[in-house]
Amino acid sequence: MRATVIRGPQDIRVEEVPDPALRHPGDAVVRVTHACICGSDLWAYRGVAAREPGQRIGHEFMGVVEAVGAEVASVAPGDRVIAPFVWSDGVCGYCTEGLFTSCPHGGFWGQPGSDGGQGEAVRVPFADGTLVRLPADLPAELEAPVLSLADVMGTGHHAAVAAGVRRGGTVAVVGDGAVGLCGVLAAKRLGAERIVMLGRHEDRTAIARKFGATDVVPERGEGVQAVLEAVGTEDAMRTAISITRDGGAVGYVGVPHGGSAGVDIRQMFDRNITLGGGVAPVRAYLPELLADVLAGELDPSPVFDLVIGLDQVPDGYAAMDERRALKAMITF
């Protein structure tokens, strides 16, 4: 089969790789129909996050089950499914608490020895604990909204939950990428009355307004009760903490890069600021978010502003890196 691999900084290729096969009774093989490029993939593309030459890449996908192991009970060949960006066994203590990302048997798509999501097929370990079945008659117009639930919408929702967004509250969002924009949508869904988007790029702030942002400002402003940090740099975290009012909370989901990541413990201590978040346990949020998408009540699809085929994936990385695209969707 063909899949996306990374050979080094700025070097993304689509190459022939071995077809995935069942290795364990709990495995499934999924033929990918839709995938996408994540902003976090760009850290590897830029050489900031280390990858082995030839390592698979991509962690957001949906598709059709092609084969299942003898112990798989929740899905069958022919089922349409979506996968969160990590696999998990679904039965350990962490999984039963909803923290699927801490599963001791779990892992991330694209890690050495595993398939990446940006390929024609994926072997899914622990299929029963990982995959979520979709309606067989899923309308084409809902495919993009559903795909966003594999990562960016669930991650934006995690930031909002971690920051304690509540009905009638005020929220600020730091980061105008796909996750930050989904954080705006999540805050609106949870009932926030005022949502402030920090951003300077008109194409992205236009989506933020469509998603429910009531204010757009280019830089830090007055303090708010809840702040969503969706970048991961020191400057972004510093800004997030600084604009949180005393007694407020920061929900951080940007993958941290650089030193202390801008966390000043003394500042947080003196002002009673709570810091929560981390790797989003998307599998825990998938059922409720999927229900809203299927009901027509949640539509994150505007974050996809570029649709490409597998052969065009290297161009998709370049477009996102150069900010000519917000988020690329790959169709097979």
Rank of each mutant, 00 (worst) to 15 (best):
A236E: 12
G232I: 06
G63H: 12
Q267H: 13
G183Q: 10
G168I: 03
A140I: 09
G116K: 08
V184T: 06
G309V: 03
R31K: 15
A83T: 12
A208D: 01
T244M: 02
R46G: 03
G169W: 00
V81W: 03
F332C: 04
R166S: 15
T239P: 01
K327P: 01
A67K: 15
P9N: 11
G107A: 05
M62H: 11
G39R: 07
S148V: 12
G98L: 01
L289I: 13
P125W: 00
G309M: 06
L228W: 00
G78H: 09
V179F: 04
D292P: 03
P77R: 14
L181S: 03
G58H: 12
D215V: 11
G183T: 09
V224P: 09
G106P: 07
G177R: 11
H24W: 11
V132E: 14
P84N: 12
P112V: 05
V227E: 03
L99W: 05
M320L: 07
L286C: 06
E66C: 10
E193G: 08
D292T: 12
D89M: 12
H157W: 15
T96A: 14
G180T: 09
G212I: 06
G296P: 01
I265H: 13
D89V: 09
G191I: 02
V72H: 05
V75H: 07
D19T: 07
R271V: 02
C103D: 04
D264S: 14
D246S: 12
F108G: 07
A67Y: 10
E322H: 11
V5N: 00
L289G: 13
I243E: 02
R204E: 00
R51W: 00
G69T: 01
A50F: 09
E16N: 12
A261F: 13
V313K: 04
V72T: 09
A249M: 02
A73I: 04
T205V: 13
C103G: 12
D176S: 15
T170E: 13
V65C: 07
F304Y: 15
G180D: 10
H105S: 15
A280C: 03
C36H: 06
I265E: 05
D203H: 11
P287Y: 04
E229S: 03
D176G: 13
E229D: 04
V313T: 12
L142Q: 15
G116M: 07
G93H: 00
M329W: 07
P302D: 09
A318D: 14
C92H: 01
T274M: 13
